[in-house]
Simulated scan of single mutants.
Amino acid sequence: MSTIIESRSFTLSEAWKGVQSAKPGIRIREAAKELGVSEAELLATKLHDGVTRLQGPWPELLNRFKTLGKVMSLTRNNACILEHKGPFQDVNVMGEDTRAMATVIGPIETRVFFSGWHFAFAATEEKSDRVLKSIQIFDRSGEAVTKIYLQEKSDEAAYEKLVDEFRAEDQSRELDVEPYALDVHNGPTDADAFLNEWSELKDTHDFFGLLRRHQVSRYRALELASGRFTFQVNAKVTPKQILDNASVSKLPIMIFAGNRGNLQIHQGKVRTIRLLDRGHTGAEQWLNVLDPDFNMHMRMDLVHTAWVVRKPTTEGDVTSVELFDKEKNLITQFFGLRKPGIPEKSEWRALVHELPAL
């Protein structure tokens, strides 16, 4: 390791200590933003001090999560975090190389896109009176993709074996992070043809292919379909109203939140809903689901627009509510819980019908 790299790592590590001293309890993600670096770069300063860099193959690493027993799986984007406790029960890998992806089904449910997996670490951290052990995955820009935390009943021996077997040869503190270019979709060239294809959808999963074929962003698609397949609802009221009503009526719902490398899904009922102010200035407003094996934390102050979206399928229309931030990035999607081949529940449609339209 060069003297320059060592010096930069030491300087960044000292700067992190300074931020922690000035703002006790600050999370690593927020500290990284203040220091103008990625979270992965900041975590890498702890290599040889409770942090170990891991390597792939990523599908094999994901499959080994099954050996850990009950864990907590965390997936987030800038405005929403989903946390589930349970085992990685059923893992299925499909495709190869950059097209490889996987489905995880069971108490923890995710859709994994390995093209977004670039850095991985095992981390042991002391927080208050606890020792937290985790596996943390990041994309090539250093943004967190997913984090897996051991729980009281996790298999620590399996964790240590995983860390030993997937330990990377390169344990340098310097990471070669690379920002992503902005995704620019200027389509569709033919809006009528796009909307006509939308009207002929047979499955909700076909929507992704529709966007790709017409080279149109998700948000632009919702704008084009406004009044026909989509309409806006009050963004500041909608998320809490959905969760409150689903909690009171015990209606099972689906919540999707993700990023480039991971999409985590909640399927089931929600019970304890809380709206809280957080952050050092109190400006952050968080909408929370605080259930025993499922937590959601959403930054309501970052929710800018909310859309009701209708997609035709062979079982009838499927209705979602989709939240976006000011930059038109997708934050979260809500659906009524349904299984393939089963029509959407009328109770979910009634709940969506009650949302305050703009």
Rank of each mutant, 00 (worst) to 15 (best):
D97I: 00
G258L: 00
R8S: 04
L201I: 01
A32I: 11
N262D: 12
E125T: 04
Q89G: 12
G227Q: 09
A221K: 03
S226Y: 12
L150A: 02
T281R: 10
R274Y: 03
F335H: 05
M101H: 10
A221S: 14
V233P: 04
S217T: 10
A22P: 03
L43G: 04
W307S: 06
R213K: 15
P312G: 08
K311Q: 10
R278I: 11
N78A: 09
V19C: 07
D170K: 12
L43K: 02
S2L: 00
I253W: 09
I242Q: 08
A193L: 11
T281A: 10
G18I: 06
A221L: 01
H297V: 04
G95E: 03
R218Q: 10
R111Q: 10
Y180M: 05
D277G: 03
I108M: 08
G69E: 07
A350Q: 10
Q171V: 06
G106C: 07
Y180Q: 09
M72L: 06
Q267N: 15
V184Q: 13
K46C: 10
M298Y: 07
Q55I: 02
M254E: 05
A158W: 04
A357W: 00
D49H: 12
G36D: 05
R76L: 09
R8L: 03
L132G: 02
D164F: 10
P252T: 10
K311D: 11
S141I: 00
L287T: 02
N77V: 01
T103G: 04
L42I: 02
L162H: 02
I5S: 12
R274K: 10
E160Q: 13
F208Q: 15
A257L: 07
W16Q: 00
N186W: 09
G341P: 08
A31F: 09
E315M: 13
